[in-house]
Design a protein around this nucleic acid. Structure first.
Lengths: 238, 238
DNA sequence: GTCGGAATTTGCTCTGGAGCAAACTTCCGC
DNA sequence: GCGGAAGTTTGCTCCAGAGCAAATTCCGAC
């Protein structure tokens, strides 16, 4: 807990953390240094809120490592996952959309490392760093596209297709090759998956069991491996 | 049809068209003049596409009058309405999100008047006109919020609630007071409403019939009047 | 190891709302 | 005024998937 000699290097973050990430990729080392010096770094346990819907958007964040679910809670207390955010993306950028409160809650799905800056710096970043705005809006555009897709899925597809597609998206974003297939590399329960696809954990469980019998997936507690992605793609299209 | 003396004023658009609209509201008359001179004005019939999903985003648009539905078409040919856009808003602003193609199709729901500019001017507008970017991102933020709400609705609510909420949103955006209630001031069919709420026209029809018997709404062909908004609000919450 | 809680599986029932079919109504063009 | 097309209503059937209940398995804490 104590750093004998090099105490000052402990909190000092390395520039290489950011250089390859889209919103910062075009910046000079010196600029990144400045940005990092203004940042607060923090580790979150799995399953805790980084920020909450409706609260004033005081900070914006960069997910360095881990995985975050953006969720909304309905009046009746159900959770709906609106979006998944993988490491390397900004989140909580309410300011970019002219909002003063967070429109949703961000919840870690794994242990996560997050940088953050006070929202008042947002405008500075946009003004001073070339490409910063463009790149973040590109990410945003991507998210809007995802949300659109999700609306279409919810509106037209059957549960089986939705779950298949959700799995495919998850392995695309966070798949890790293991023998026998591609594994989702963070713990995910049937219940999580049901919130992602707007169904019940029972139905998800039944589907997975069925697929496992057919050799499409392999699932243990909190862990899912896709063995035959192609077959899932077919299922996903109905 | 012919302008005897003042022919040259015919195609000339009046500055007042834009002065009160958010993205332009902070601009000087001279600037608005320039913007208008670069614009193409066009009238669309009801039910035609202004631009289509996947096509290169060559222009961006301002809906001056009318009403537009932003739709997506599924592989199986069904239409899903993702968003409704009322007069006074920009649309087709793919550029703002770093996209080179339109992410969805925009279809007029009524006869509409639309201004448009070549996409290459987008960056100019953002750079030159103070507040333009901020204001458009605010609109965008609003739309993201709406999409989020829609996802939650689709994921958790029953059809009756969704239809009730859709109606309420429509009268909020485009309601016109008439005796006996508030009327949606553009023609909308049961089928349109079913695409908006991800159900079938049959179910919508049954619901409306039921509500009409209870005195909540009044509906004719392509026309719906809400008589008791409060009761609908209650229905909408389940 | 053993205990307890969390996650998962599975069976059974019940229903919202889709799907299909058919009649009816309204409107528009000739 | 007379078709015919577009929009609407209504009845009936059927099933995907929710809801409930219970058993089982897994895992971490002690």
């Amino acid at each position: 807990m104590n750093e004998p000699a090099s105490r000052k290097t402990l909190p000092r973050l390395d520039e290489s953390l950011l250089t390859h990430l889209p919103p910062f990729s075009r910046l000079e080392k010196r600029q990144i240094r400045t940005i990092l010096d203004q940042a607060t770094s923090r580790r979150y346990d799995s399953g805790v809120a980084i920020f909450e819907e409706g609260h004033p958007a005081e900070r914006f964040y960069m997910l360095l490592d881990g995985y975050v679910r953006v969720i909304r809670i309905t009046p009746t207390g159900e959770q709906v996952t609106a979006l998944h955010i993988p490491a390397g993306q900004l989140l909580g950028i309410a300011r970019a959309l002219g909002r003063v409160t967070y429109p949703a809650t961000a919840m870690t799905a794994t242990e996560s490392i997050v940088l953050s800056w006070p929202t008042r710096l947002w405008d500075t970043f946009v003004a001073e760093y070339d490409g910063f705005a463009t790149e973040t809006y590109k990410t945003l555009g991507h998210r809007v596209g995802e949300m659109n897709t999700r609306i279409v899925e919810l509106a037209t597809q059957q549960v089986e297709q939705r779950v298949a597609n959700a799995l495919l998206r998850l392995i695309n974003q966070t798949g890790r090759k293991v023998e026998g297939g591609i594994e989702i590399d963070f713990p995910i329960t049937r219940h999580d998956l049901s919130e992602l696809t707007a169904t019940t954990l029972h139905t998800v469980s039944r589907l997975l069991s069925g697929w496992e019998k057919r050799g499409l997936v392999l699932s243990k507690r909190k862990r899912i491996t896709v063995c035959d992605p192609h077959a899932l793609v077919l299922l996903g299209q109905g």
